[in-house]
Simulated assay, not measured.
Amino acid sequence: MDTSTVVPFAAHLPASLEREGLDASAAPSTSTEQEVARLRARVRELSAELVQAQETACRHVARELHDGVGAELTATRFALAGVETWLPADAPPQCAAALAVANRSLDAVCEASRQAVAELHAPSLEAGIVGALAHWTGDFAARTQLRTSFVCAADLRLTRLPADAALAVFRVAQEALNNIAKHARAESADVRIETSRRHLTLIIVDDGIGVTRNARTRRGHFGLSGMQARCAAFDGTLRVSARRTGAEHGHTGYGCGTPSRGTLVRARFAWDAMLAQAPRAQRHALQS
């Protein structure tokens, strides 16, 4: 004779769950959701730490370039000026020509150093992300001679972005445009910010040679790790793909349509994470 007692699983639920009217099937689901939420929070935390380390490294390199390399370049310029002054009138013309070449090379190095320092320093975000990106894309176009446009959605939330969130969007756009200038052999680049109820999406497209699968997965190539970390720090994602007609206009079928030259970068950030109050220490580290 079977004398065992069948006890409903719900009888083992905590009293708090019983009071809330949750059945047994809901308990595992709730536990799984909590674990997923915990892991996502950990990803955000680690990504933010990586971004903070990158910004710290950028500031250090910028100081070294400005204080160390900058001082040496200035000393070299004075030395060349002295040689030019002391050069006798009957010196061979090759001497003057060599000095001219040295001065042109020095000018180029000084300009490259100045530009590097400017890019390594965090941008001024007093005008918000829209003003910062508009200014930087204009400077990028003048510097590279690439046709560059910037279009932004009219969304009041863009004016309320905390500095760390605005900096993340700016750095992704900056890295993507620099990659275009270095690798794409493009003639034009377009930057656009789109917004939806849940996400801010940054889109950068060019008409260059495109990107291959190997290039997308090659370790360290295109600075993807830093761009991905900046997106992940705000519950976002980064997608880099070969550009296809219609893809940059929000179509999801990347395999559809007539192929077009170039690369599409789509960086997505979650509004909830971006507008959340950032920890004071993290925000200070990113802005200082």
Rank of each mutant, 00 (worst) to 15 (best):
D235I: 01
G253Y: 10
F269N: 03
A168R: 06
T237M: 06
A186M: 12
I203S: 08
R197A: 13
A173N: 11
V240P: 06
R192H: 14
A186C: 09
A270S: 11
R243P: 02
Q174K: 14
R216F: 04
L238Q: 05
S260Q: 15
G236C: 00
T217S: 13
T258A: 08
F234S: 04
M227L: 08
V205P: 07
I203A: 08
R213T: 08
N179Y: 06
R266A: 09
L275F: 04
P259D: 00
W271A: 00
A232L: 11
T263P: 07
T258M: 07
R216M: 12
S260W: 07
Q277S: 10
T201L: 01
A242G: 13
E248I: 02
R261L: 13
A278H: 05
R218M: 11
R185S: 06
D235L: 02
A166M: 03
A278P: 15
A232P: 11
K182S: 02
H183T: 00
P259I: 06
A189F: 12
A273V: 03
L177M: 14
V265R: 05
L177I: 04
N214M: 06
G226R: 05
Q277T: 13
S196C: 04
G255N: 08
S241Y: 12
I209N: 08
R244H: 15
A181Y: 13
G220F: 09
I204K: 13
N178W: 15
V172E: 03
G246V: 11
G250L: 10
A281C: 00
A242W: 13
G250E: 03
L275T: 00
Y254T: 00
W271T: 00
R218V: 00
R244A: 12
N179I: 01
G250C: 09
T201G: 01
V205S: 14
R219D: 07
P259W: 12
A186G: 06
R218I: 01
D272G: 00
R280S: 07
A233Y: 00
H199E: 05
I193M: 15
T217F: 11
R266K: 15
A173D: 07
T245Q: 15
T263Q: 08
L202P: 14
I209S: 10
A229F: 07
F269G: 00
A276I: 01
Q277D: 04
A186L: 09
L202R: 11
A189G: 12
T258C: 03
D207R: 13
T212D: 03
A276G: 02
V172I: 15
